[in-house]
Simulated scan of single mutants.
Amino acid sequence: MSKIALAIHGGCGVMAKLDLREEEWTAARADLHRSLQAGWAVLNAGGSALDAVQASVLVMEDSPHFNAGYGAALNTDGEHELDASIMDGRTLEAGAVTLARRIRNPIKAARRVMEKGEAVLLGGSSADEFARAEGLDIVEPDYFTTERRVRALAAMKAHAAAGTAVKASEAEKHGTVGAVALDRAGHLAAATSTGGYNNKPAGRIGDTPIVGAGTYARDGICAVSGTGKGEFFIRYAVGHEVASRMNYLGENLEKAATNVIIEDLKPHEIGAGLVAVAADGSIAAPYNTDGMFRGWVTPEGQFFVATHSEVFAVS
């Protein structure tokens, strides 16, 4: 019997501490805690890592505090285009959807794509129709819209007009949610979901639905879910790179994950972070921004959540 472990992130696009009232930070941490509880309940009952990561991501897709599902970012046309993926480290099977507009919980659709086995990635209206045919919840596009994302889109358009987009805060730019888990059978899984970044070009696809970039899991090594400027996560195949450093160089999880996020991506001066869990139950959550919504449960069952440098133990 293996140890069990779980880690989540709600994106590295975290606002400065003074940008929200303390009660809003408290609410965001409460939803991180609920996400951990959902995934941990699955693992603690002997369930699979795959079910656990889906359960955790579902909570964050339904929360307005994170850029996935309800509360997702708006593209340059003021529309939502949602991405998600999930991967089973036991078989290396994976499923993903991209540019979805009506799927209430894109992670559920990604799971169905994986289970059908006819494709790894479905996009656009075909992803929406697939989800509808599978009986998943379909919503009107404005379901996903929140006032916070409307303001963020306006801010990014203002930056674009002024030529100051590179100076925009991480909160104005992007965000993602994800989960990684190790179950009692020793299997690993990862799941990631996002609305992309605010004011992104219509039709843009980032790293979240790209297996090996924003999401990766391989039994015996690690599971990874990333957050940040997706174009660079694709170029560096970040999820696979972390696993490769461990597999080929013999690095432990913390060193491999930190090398990729802090060192490899440094020349590009982009916001980036990830959560990862190794086959031994160790957890890593490096990031290079002011903060990253994140949380984890140790193999001993201790819960922790954080937004910036301060880490809160929760029960």
Results as ranks from 00 to 15, higher is better:
A7I: 05
L253G: 13
S315A: 15
S126I: 03
A237D: 00
S35G: 13
W296P: 03
P209W: 03
A284W: 01
I234D: 01
M15L: 10
A202H: 15
T258S: 15
C222S: 14
E310G: 00
G203E: 11
I234C: 02
G175A: 09
T26Y: 14
T164G: 00
H308P: 01
F233Y: 11
V275N: 01
S193H: 07
R235E: 07
V166T: 12
H174R: 09
I262S: 00
R132N: 00
G89Q: 02
T91I: 05
A278R: 11
S225E: 06
R29H: 00
A94P: 05
V238F: 11
G228W: 04
C222L: 10
H80Q: 08
G203N: 09
L18V: 13
A131L: 01
G291A: 04
S244I: 01
S85H: 01
L92G: 04
T208K: 08
Y216S: 01
I283S: 11
G124M: 12
G163N: 09
A284G: 08
H80V: 14
L265G: 11
D280K: 05
N67S: 11
G195N: 04
N259K: 08
A217F: 04
G95Q: 06
M87I: 09
V180H: 05
E23S: 14
T76S: 15
E129L: 13
A160T: 00
R148A: 11
E241M: 12
R132S: 04
N259Q: 10
K229S: 07
A110N: 06
A190M: 05
R294W: 00
E147W: 06
V314D: 09
C222W: 08
D128F: 10
H240E: 12
G214W: 00
D137L: 00
A213L: 12
P286A: 03
E172Q: 15
V139L: 07
N105D: 07
I283Q: 13
